Each structure stands twice: as structure tokens, then as C-alpha cells.
Amino acid sequence: MPKATETILEIDLNALDKNYQYITSKIEPGTKVLAVVKAFAYGSDSVAVARELEQLGVDYFAVAYSNEGEAIRNASIETPILVLHTLPSNFENIVNRCLEPSIYSRKILEDFIAFAETKNQKNYPIHLKFNTGLNRLGFQETDISFICEKLKSTKAVKVKSVFSHLAASEDLKEIDFTKSQISQFQKISEKIIDTLGYRPLFHCANTSGIINYPNAHFDMVRTGIGLYGFGNDEEENKHLKPVGTLKTIISQIHTVEIGQSVGYNRGFIAEKITRSATLPLGHADGIPRSYGKGKGWVTINGEKAHILGNVCMDMIMVDVTNINCEEGDEAVIFGPQTTADELSAAINSISYELITAVSQRVKRIVVRN
């Protein structure tokens, strides 16, 4: 891997390929795969990731909002793109960029049908989202009759898929709850087929659902965090490799005498002579202040260097008293060795939050390691 000369996020496409192959090994032939590339592909690079996955033969992409889908379309990605959180203000952009909206409420259904009709659309693909327990977005089972009546009264739209979202598929203490969600979704699926008169795709399994509930794969599975190297389980993580490595360099090294302080609000006061290394990244780059005062660390020349004092907007200072290093040496925040899972656990967070927080001002470099 190339050594850092500034703060960079290295994106390893070989790791992405490996993760995709492992996840797809868990599904039956013929089951479609939807790759979730929202939030800049979980903090990495949505265009680079989408291009690679399209080459690997993925069937669908999903984004949270239409502007994310537009960015991928602008990169000449032709694979269908599902917009998970459709807003009326985005209808124009969705249709113009050939994106496919998730329809999750009576109002959104009525509004999108009306919009599609004004645009003289015919059989425009939509996706029906049902709430089976996450209680975030989605129709209720009792809405099926209303939905089908609306759909039968127009030729402007056609249902491409029906889906739901598992709330706790990674938590083995919630097996009964997850099974009840799957059972409810199965019931909804059967009602939809009977009432709608044709059979769309059905999907409800996320990454942990793919791994833990093979009976819930239906016609398609969705994978997000697994693609980027995290399986929500220590054993599964052994089969996956983090795609992103966040690294930087040592800008300067100070000797901090006893009684001297480091950083804002004197967040660290030396009780012994301390070597402090300053690194050019901070909370504006995705390192929260909660990692300060020794909770977070970086790795320098294979050794842990804990954060001294408070995280600044653009810099952190780390303890290199017992580390053989010099200015210009590389520091790794997270990657395959020190994973985002491990680092996020230090502040009772999760890998999702840490990797998606990496600022867009951090330079992305795409590699094949």
C-alpha cells in the first residue's frame, strides 16, 4: 500500500470484491443482490464502489436520497437504483434520472401517481415499503387494499418490488422478534400477489439477515455494511475485509514538560515528560470529540498512540512517548488491522457511524491491494 503524505481514505477494491463474493456465497443461485451505496457508499466513494459492483454483476443499487442516485447516474451507471427515502420535492429528479422511488405512505403513493401521470409515464417502476416492526417508514398491512385500488386505477406506475426492513437481524437475543417480522412480511407478500394480480420482487434481508436467516432471502437480498467489511459479528468479520483505511501523517512532534498542557481547554496536563505528535485530522474530518482524552487512538509503526486532550477541528495530538517515530511518519486511524468496529467500541458506538463520518474533504484514493 502507498504511504500517506497527507490525510487520505484508501479504498481497496479487492477487499470489496472479496466481500461481495463471500456475501453472494450465502444465497441461492437466482437470488438477486441489491447493493446499498448510500452515504457515499458508507463513507467511501459511491461512484468507484458502484462501478466495481456493476462489473461484478450486482442487480440493483440503493441510495437514501435522489441526489445520491443522480451522482451515480452521472457516472454512467446503468444498473437500476432504488431511492429508499422518497420526498415529493425529489420526484422530478427521480424521473429525470431514471431512479426508482420507494413508496411508503398513502400520501407519497397518491402524490407520485399524480406526478407520473402529468409526465405521461407508463408503468414507471416503484417499490412498496412495508413496516413490520422497525417503525420508521412503511405502509401497514391494512393499507394493501388502498394501495391496490390506487394502482389498478392508473397505468402510470407499476410495482417492481415489495420490501421491508429487519430491525435486529444481527442480535441473536431477538430471534423471535425477527422471525415475527419475516412471518409478517411473508403474509404481506401473499396478500399483495393475490390482490395486485402480478408478482413483483420481494426482499427484506439486510447483511445480517442474509447470514442469519437464509429462509428470508425471498427474491432479492440487500447488503450494505457487509460490502464494506463488517458482518456485525466477530466470526463473520473473519470472512470480510474492511474496504476503507483512514490514514494520515505526523505533522510535528513536541516534548511536553511536566505541568504543561496539550490542546484546547488544557484537556491533557503532563504528569511526566511526554512526546506529543500532531496529526492533520480532527472532528471536521470525522473524528468525534468523544475520542479525546485517551479514549481513541491511532497506530504508528505498529504501536497504539492514544489521543491526548481534546480533539480539535482539524488536528489531534497523540502520545508517542514510547514509540519510535518522526515527523512525516504514517499514522493509521482505522483499516484492516485496527478496525472501525474496534475503535468505535471505545466510545460505545458502531462501525457504521465512524466510517460514514469521514468528511468529504478527506482525499479518497482507490487502490487494489
Score class of each variant (00 low, 15 high):
P214S: 10
N215P: 09
A216D: 03
D219C: 02
D219L: 00
V221K: 04
V221N: 08
V221C: 06
R222N: 02
R222P: 01
R222L: 03
T223L: 05
G224M: 06
G224K: 08
I225G: 00
G226K: 08
L227V: 01
Y228S: 00
Y228W: 04
F230W: 00
F230A: 11
F230G: 07
F230D: 12
G231K: 08
N232Y: 07
E234V: 04
E234H: 14
E234I: 04
E235V: 10
N237P: 00
K238S: 00
H239A: 08
L240E: 07
K241P: 05
K241M: 07
P242L: 13
P242T: 02
V243M: 12
V243L: 14
G244N: 07
G244I: 14
G244D: 10
G244W: 15
T245W: 15
K247E: 10
T248N: 02
I249T: 13
I250W: 08
I250S: 14
S251A: 05
H254A: 15
H254D: 13
T255M: 06
T255C: 06
E257W: 14
I258K: 13
I258R: 09
G259M: 04
Q260E: 13
Q260M: 09
S261K: 11
V262T: 07
V262N: 11
G263V: 02
G263K: 05
Y264K: 09
Y264R: 15
N265I: 03
R266P: 02
R266H: 15
R266I: 04
R266L: 10
I269Q: 10
K272I: 00
I273H: 11
T274L: 06
T274P: 12
S276N: 12
T278A: 14
T278Q: 12
L279Y: 04
L279V: 04
L279A: 13
P280V: 09
A284Q: 10
G286N: 08
R289P: 04
R289S: 12
S290G: 11
Y291S: 01
K293L: 01
K295P: 05
K295I: 04
K295W: 04
V298Q: 13
T299G: 09
I300L: 09
G302Y: 15
K304I: 09
A305R: 04
I307D: 15
I307E: 14
I307N: 12
I307L: 14
L308Q: 14
G309D: 08
V311L: 00
C312Y: 12
D314Y: 10
D314G: 12
M315R: 13
D319L: 11
V320D: 07
T321Y: 00
I323W: 10
N324T: 01
C325I: 10
E326S: 06
E326R: 15
E327F: 14
E327P: 06
E327G: 01
G328W: 02
G328L: 10
G328M: 03
D329Y: 15
D329Q: 15
D329N: 15
E330H: 08
V332R: 07
I333M: 13
I333L: 06
G335E: 05
P336W: 10
P336H: 03
P336I: 01
D341E: 14
E342D: 01
L343A: 03
S344P: 05
I347H: 08
I347P: 07
N348T: 05
S349M: 11
S349C: 05
S349N: 13
I350V: 10
S351G: 03
Y352T: 02
Y352F: 01
Y352N: 03
L354E: 01
L354Y: 01
L354P: 01
I355Y: 03
T356K: 12
T356H: 13
A357I: 00
V358S: 12
V358M: 06
